[in-house]
């Protein structure tokens, strides 16, 4: 093999590799106030989901067992009253967004996009300057560590180093090993976020939620109030939980909608349309709701 020929090929490969790693120059402005459209998954984002409604969550056995052991009194533990949410709360919470960019004072280039925090979610900084994620031994926090890249006019953000949190506010947990990939897609005055959670601890497949926002001239608050824990009746050192087989709410959702228990307990197959065929013979259409629809005890 001739060395000059090898050198030429080497140079070509370097150039191609360099070209591939350059960002596409089609960035768009995301800054402004964005009001959340909450009709989608309204009950879950508002009052909260039914207890033990884990349909559509790709649980593994550990994720399901963890959820079944969960008692709502957990959030009244003195250490957990101020247990704020991870960035997954963007997808599962009801709040609006304020977005702005941080620019390098010398070059004017955007070095980060920032999503302002709100009542129970910390601000999210999306670093655009190519910095690496911290080591696996670095601390985790509610914010996590997020880097972003533009793919055409779509911003893709990747978040790691988050603390434990929830996937659904009824005991479906996310671990500190979870990562969240968020894409920001703007169509004029509408902004769509797609969040993909991957969690090797509790999920067998990625879990995906989308959120839509409308641009608004009304300013969105950028930070929530401080949190001061009070006494909510759980003694310090006590750990509320249900023993295996003792969760009193396990059939509440199944009875409300006349669906089999296996559907409410989640698992990857419950995410897909084919699952409806599997349970169609076990499903009885409930009587038409007349009042308090959607709430336990409604009729």
């Amino acid at each position: 093999m001739r060395w000059h020929s090898l050198f030429f090929t080497f140079a070509v490969v370097v150039c191609v590799a360099s070209f591939i790693t350059q960002p596409a120059l089609a960035e768009i402005d995301l800054s402004g106030s964005w009001t959340a459209k909450n009709h989608e998954d309204a009950m879950e984002r508002g009052a909260g989901p039914n207890p033990d409604d884990w349909a559509g969550l790709p649980f593994n056995d550990a994720g399901r067992a963890k959820a079944l052991s969960f008692s709502q009194s957990t959030i009244s533990m003195p250490e957990r009253i101020c247990w704020f949410q991870t960035q997954w709360h963007i997808a599962a919470g009801p709040f609006s967004l304020k977005i702005w960019n941080e620019a390098d004072p010398l070059t004017g280039k955007t070095i980060a996009w920032v999503l302002g925090g709100w009542e129970t979610r910390a601000p999210m900084t999306i670093w655009m300057d190519g910095r690496p994620h911290p080591s696996e031994n670095a601390p985790h926090d509610q914010t996590g560590f997020t880097t972003g890249t533009w793919n055409g006019d779509v911003l893709t953000a990747y978040t790691t180093h988050i603390k434990t949190g929830y996937i659904r506010r009824n005991g479906a947990a996310s671990s500190d090993q979870a990562s969240i990939t968020t894409t920001f897609l703007r169509h004029g005055d509408m902004l769509t976020l797609t969040l993909v959670m991957e969690d090797p601890t509790y999920l067998t497949e990625p879990y995906i939620l989308t959120r839509s926002y409308l641009s608004t001239p009304a300013p969105v608050a950028t930070a929530g109030p401080p949190c001061i824990p009070g006494d909510e009746g759980v003694e310090s050192g006590k750990v509320p939980h249900y023993l295996p087989g003792k969760n009193p709410f396990i059939d509440e959702m199944a009875k409300l909608y006349n669906i089999p228990r296996e559907a409410s307990l989640g698992g990857a197959e419950t995410m897909y349309p084919e699952f409806r065929d599997k349970i169609k013979d076990k499903f009885v259409i409930p009587a038409r709701c007349k009042r308090n629809c959607g709430a336990p005890g409604g009729n």
């Binding site: 101020c82 910390a122 031994n137 670095a138 985790h140 401080p226 949190c227 824990p229």
Partner: peptide, 19 residues
């Protein structure tokens, strides 16, 4: 707390694993 967004609390170095 009360300013949960501001910095970290007490750090704990475990016997093994991350900070």
């Amino acid at each position: 707390i009360p300013f949960i967004y501001k910095g970290a609390g007490t750090y704990v170095i475990p016997g093994h694993g991350r900070l």
